[in-house]
Amino acid sequence: MTLLILFWEFFQTGLFAIGGGLATLPFLQKILERYPDWFGSLHVADVVAIAESTPGPIAVNAASFAGYYAAGVPGALAATFAVVLPSFIIASLVSRALEQYRNSRLIQSAFGALRPTVAGLIAAAGWVVLRTALFSAEIGAGGLLAAIEWKSVALFAVLLVLLHLPKVKSIHPVVYIIAGGAAGLLLGL
C-alpha cells in the first residue's frame, strides 16, 4: 500500500512540478507533511541538501531519497519511476510534433501564467525551509522573536551575501552545503 501511495504522490509531483529544479519543492513539502510517519524527522531542506550534493535532477534525487526513507529500495524505485513517468508520456506524445507544440498559442499563454505562479509556490516552500532553519523547533510563549536562532540567522546572512557576489555566485551549491555543515558543527547549532 505504501508503494502505491508513493507512486501516486510522486506521479502527481512529476505531472504538476513545472519548470524543473526547485519547482519540486512545494510538492515534496506537502508529501512530507501528509505522511509524517514515513519520513520521521526528515525535513524538506535535508532532501534538497542530499539532492544538490549528488548528480541528477532534483526531482529524481528527491523522489529516490524520500522513497527510500519511506519504504527502502522498492520505495526508491516506485517514487523515482513515478516522478519521471509524466515527462516520459508527454515527451513521447509530442516528440513528433515538437514545432507545433512549442509554437502553440495555448501552451504559450498557459506557461505565461505558470511561470510567476511557480515562483510563488517555491516561495511558499522556501518559507517553510527558512522557518525550520532559522527558528527553534518550538515556537513558545515568547512568540516568533524569542524563537530566533541568532547563530543560524548570522550564518544565513553571510551565505546570502556570498551568493550575490559575482565571482562566488557560480560556485557549486554542494560547496555551500558542505560549508553549512562545517559551520553547524563549529557553532554547535
Binding site: 531542506a45 517555491i122 550564518l155 544565513f156 560549508a179 553549512g180 559551520a183 558543527l185
Partner: peptide, 10 residues
Amino acid sequence: GIRVAVAALI
C-alpha cells in the same frame, strides 16, 4: 547548518 545553507540557496 546544512539547512541554513539550503535556506540561503533557495
